[in-house]
Design a protein around this nucleic acid. Structure first.
Length: 296
DNA sequence: AAGGGAGCCTGGCGGC
DNA sequence: TGCCGCCAGGCTCCCT
């Protein structure tokens, strides 16, 4: 159930196999996932070379030699696995020849690479994921991408930027951080984690973190750095699990990661010197985990 | 207009 | 053990 770090981990796992590969066959095993697959889906991909694999927020973007872009979203339960076909030489890639597909293997990319033939299998039990093709030169018009806010990685996200986004906003800061139009890529887990790291209560109105002159309040100050930290540490953890996973069975996607507050209701707050107990509340229908003592 | 809730799906888990 | 209800990390649409 991927948020930005998991999607980035998947991207890094797929990139060495997919970039430069040619789609020799696209096996589409049902009419669609969350949305129907695009018209002529297989025909538009077959024969195309994948020239690059990027990411924007929680979207994977594969650039094709046809000029089109394949946009992929993993929804809540999507994952990929890589399987080298028998006889191909692909160091580091799961090598066992497995021809069977599982019930929820919905899309199979058969690829020709410099190291031989491989296949990349998309599995998604809940089918909240989706794939779309963006026509050449129309990426800016793509509704999935055009409304997205700032990436939470890198320097684009600063305390000042957050203050501008939060100013005058009455919704809880938890909801504001989940709003992909403001900051794109955070999900429920990492919002909980970042707010805990920053010592900010998830119930606090976003606008209350901004001074009357529009400047960030003292309490808001650590948030941008905490978001970047939480995300980058999760990506690092994903990187190491990626190596393990690949050796195990070629699957990419989820990885074990321990959290400070997420799913830890009733446990002691891990912040040094804090004697609080992690609490769970429901905000706009989803669980929020936080420490009532050190998050204000 | 912003904010909250329902709905899309299946699988896994805890409780009885 | 078996069944049932609840819950899940995303996103969009619809309603207020």
């Amino acid at each position: 159930m991927p948020e930005l770090p998991e999607v980035e981990t998947v991207r890094r796992g797929l990139e060495p196999v997919m970039t430069g590969a040619t789609v020799t066959q696209l096996e589409v095993r049902r009419p669609g996932l969350r949305y129907p697959f695009p018209g002529e889906f297989a025909a538009r991909l077959e024969g195309a070379k994948i020239t690059g694999l990027g990411r924007r927020a929680k979207y994977l973007l594969a650039d094709l030699s046809t000029g089109e872009t394949l946009l992929m979203h993993l929804g809540m339960s999507g994952s990929f696995r890589i399987e080298a076909e028998a006889g191909s030489k692909m160091p580091g890639i799961f090598h066992h020849d497995r021809s069977k597909l599982a019930v929820h293997d919905h899309v199979v990319f058969h690829l020709g690479t410099s190291g031989g033939a491989a296949r990349v299998v998309y599995n998604d039990p809940r089918r909240f994921g989706f794939m779309q093709l963006i026509e050449a030169g129309k990426r800016d018009e793509c509704a999935f991408l055009s409304g997205l806010g700032v990436e939470p990685t890198g320097n684009a996200l600063s305390t000042e930027v957050i203050a501008r986004l939060f100013e005058g906003r009455k919704s809880p800061v938890k909801a504001a951080l989940l709003d992909q139009r403001l900051i794109a890529g955070l999900g429920n887990i990492y919002v909980c984690e970042a707010l805990h790291a920053a010592g900010i209560s998830p119930m606090r109105g976003a606008g209350t973190l901004v001074n009357r002159n529009g400047a960030p309040s003292k309490r808001l100050a650590p948030l941008a750095e905490c978001i970047r930290e939480v995300i980058s540490r999760a990506i690092e953890a994903g990187g190491s699990s990626l190596r393990d996973h690949r050796q195990a069975d070629g699957s990419l996607g989820y990885f074990q990661h321990s959290f400070s507050v997420y799913d830890r209701e009733g446990e002691a707050c891990p912040k040094p010197g804090c004697n609080g107990i992690v609490a769970r509340v429901v905000q706009s229908g989803r669980s929020t985990f936080y420490c009532p003592v050190c998050q204000r």
